[in-house]
């Protein structure tokens, strides 16, 4: 290589027409970042239809219960779980895409130059994620109320309000955890397709494998509540939890959600945005 240079010393600054020094702008408030991130979740076709599909699935589920469920099953818990199940699939997708699109669509180049403290942008996404899961759960419960009332009126059965506040709280908590799993996979994998596949493996493939393992291996059957995160979380849908079930939930969620999320965030802060 022979790149010899015609290097020239930097000359003294010539006079320039300077603008008046400008005041330093105010920092971007966090609430503004949250509102921008919320908008970004739903301003694309994919985002819009994911949101719309929550409502559509809720209506379809309610209609299905009214049409096909036996009269004895026209209860609030039937409606709530029929509406809640499609949401457990759709909500984490929203969380995944909120994070991964910054990398897969490369919009992070703009996002992280406008908000160079990546932690603030990611925290805003986390707030939006949790907010959406709570709002969606509330929507499911309201649609469930309408379904129960309509069902009892149409079919002439008594409205069965068989979900207490504790169970409602547990269902909401399960939705938030599920959505945070999607958020964690988005942060850790930072690739849309990869993170979505990761979510399906995490939530739908692993439970089958652990189920088989638990039935064939006695030692795993005993250990399972402490290591199987889906098993521990499924308790939230099945009624109230006792102290040991809360402990299982806390331990598995810490290992399978909090630790990977921390590692993913640590890597994300140091990664290169290209």
């Amino acid at each position: 290589m022979s790149t010899t240079a015609t290097t020239v010393a930097v000359p003294p600054s010539p006079p320039v027409s300077r603008r008046a020094p400008r005041p330093v702008p105010d920092p971007v408030p966090f609430a503004r970042l949250v509102s921008v991130e919320l908008r970004k979740c739903f301003d694309t076709r994919a985002g819009f239809w994911l949101l719309a599909s929550i409502g559509i699935a809720a209506l379809l589920a309610t209609g299905s219960v009214l049409l096909w469920a036996p009269d004895s099953a026209i209860t609030y818990s039937t409606f709530a779980s029929a509406i809640g199940f499609p949401m457990t699939v759709i909500l984490p997708m929203i969380a995944v895409l909120a994070v991964t699109s910054e990398w897969s669509q490369r919009s992070g180049l703009t996002t992280f130059t406008l908000v160079p403290h990546r932690g603030r942008a990611i925290a805003a996404k986390a707030v939006v994620t949790i907010g959406i899961s709570i709002a969606s759960t509330a929507l499911a419960l309201v649609v469930g109320v309408l379904g129960t009332v309509a069902g009892s009126a149409l079919l002439g059965v008594d409205a069965a309000w068989n979900l207490g506040p504790e169970r409602l709280f547990n269902i909401a908590l399960a939705q938030v955890i599920g959505m945070l799993v999607g958020f964690m996979l988005g942060v850790t994998i930072r690739h849309s397709a990869g993170a979505i596949v990761g979510y399906f493996v995490y939530s739908f493939v692993l439970p089958g494998l652990t189920e088989v393992l638990a039935q064939t291996q006695q030692w795993f059957g005993d250990l399972r509540p402490w290591v199987d995160v889906n098993y521990a979380q499924s308790a939230l849908y099945n009624g109230s939890l006792d102290a040991s079930q809360w402990a299982h939930l806390a331990v598995t969620t810490f290992v399978w959600l909090v630790i990977p999320l921390a590692v993913g965030l640590w890597a994300l802060m140091r990664s290169e945005v290209k």
Partner: peptide
């Protein structure tokens, strides 16, 4: 750059015109 309170108001950046969400 990371210490700028609102970087967009002080520095205009264009690194790659194609790096935008295609669906927006």
């Amino acid at each position: 750059f990371a210490d700028l309170p609102n970087p967009g108001r002080e520095i205009g950046v264009l690194l790659d015109a194609s790096a935008q969400h295609a669906g927006r």
